[in-house]
């Protein structure tokens, strides 16, 4: 219904009607004006609330928007997101390869790992790795049940940042494994057979045929995952890691200006998502070679649907 709202005029060239029928009357969608009016009133109310409300204390928002504590927190949040995604994607790729392999043992391992990764709440994983030292004071590498070569104090290796990155990576791995598996499975079997029949090794088939097409399919869900991790990373506040949310909270616990500072956090989270969205659309453009225009258009529509 709403899609037709823009088509209110008649097509050009109505004079050249060969049929001699009555001309088309323009179609006016009166309800569109009503919707617009309601939205404008709501916007006016919001503006009124923001601009005339002295308790909202907007100057505090501007004062802290570029505060060094806030920017340091943002840096940690971005580091956590990038590290968690990279770690999770590498692990996820390994899990996908195992899940799709012909070995029953590897498939079972992958299935179990994906189950564990997706089952344990992120918060539980975070605290688990943070408190690991209480049950495993030293981490050592060596021959199992034999001599050890190197060992470390657990608390030296897994500090707050380490625990957070490990927890996020393991949390992401299960989801990324499933995203990549669905991408791989979406690639046309016939193309895989054609490449195989050419004499390509299984690795070449993956590199030349499966990966390029699976990657394109996997971009939108992967970007969803990145945005989730960006936001989920705020749980590190519980182990005292100074990310964006931690910094904002530290500030408002002193000056009691909760709402303006939450708006500061919202602004930065929002900005990162805008950047990610631009990156996503560029990536999709680059990887959509061979898609006919219609398919590209359809992909765009699907995206808009998932975004809504």
């Amino acid at each position: 219904m709403s899609a037709a709202a823009s088509r209110t005029g008649t097509p050009a060239g109505t004079d050249s009607r060969p049929s001699g029928l009555e001309p088309m009357a323009p179609r006016v969608r009166w309800q569109e004006f009503l919707y617009l009016a309601i939205v404008l009133v709501l916007l006016a109310m919001l503006a009124n609330f923001v601009l005339t409300n002295e308790r909202l204390n907007l100057p505090v928002f501007w004062e802290y928007l570029f505060h060094p504590l806030v920017l340091d927190g943002l840096r940690i949040t971005v580091i956590l997101t990038v590290a968690g995604m990279v770690g999770g994607t590498v692990l996820g790729l390994a899990l996908t390869a195992m899940r799709l392999s012909s070995s029953p043992t590897l498939r079972a391992v992958s299935f179990t790992a994906i189950y564990v990764s997706r089952t344990i709440p992120l918060l539980v994983q975070l605290l688990f790795w943070f408190f690991l030292a209480s049950v495993l004071p030293r981490i050592s590498f060596g021959i199992p049940f034999g001599p050890e070569f190197v060992s470390f104090e657990t608390n030296e290796v897994i500090n707050q940042l380490g625990a957070a990155i490990i927890a996020l990576s393991l949390f992401v791995a299960g989801y990324m494994a499933e995203i990549m598996r669905s991408g791989v499975m979406s690639v046309d079997r016939g193309q895989v057979e054609a490449a195989t029949a050419m004499g390509m090794t299984p690795l070449s088939v993956f590199r030349r045929v499966v990966f390029p097409q699976a990657a394109r399919i996997s971009i939108p869900p992967t970007m969803n995952q990145v945005i989730s991790v960006l936001k989920y990373s705020s749980v590190v506040i519980l182990i005292g890691l100074a990310d964006l949310m931690y910094s904002v909270q530290a500030i408002y616990s002193r000056n009691f200006q909760q709402i303006p500072l939450l708006l500061v956090a919202t602004f930065w989270y929002g900005l990162v998502v805008v950047v990610l969205t631009v990156v996503q659309s560029q990536l999709e453009k680059r990887l959509s070679t061979g898609l006919p225009k219609a398919a590209r258009q359809r992909m765009k529509e699907l995206e808009e649907k998932t975004d809504a």
Partner: peptide, 12 residues
Amino acid sequence: AMVFQRFNLLAH
């Protein structure tokens, strides 16, 4: 070399 019923050209 094989020619398939459904062509199986690499779409990308």
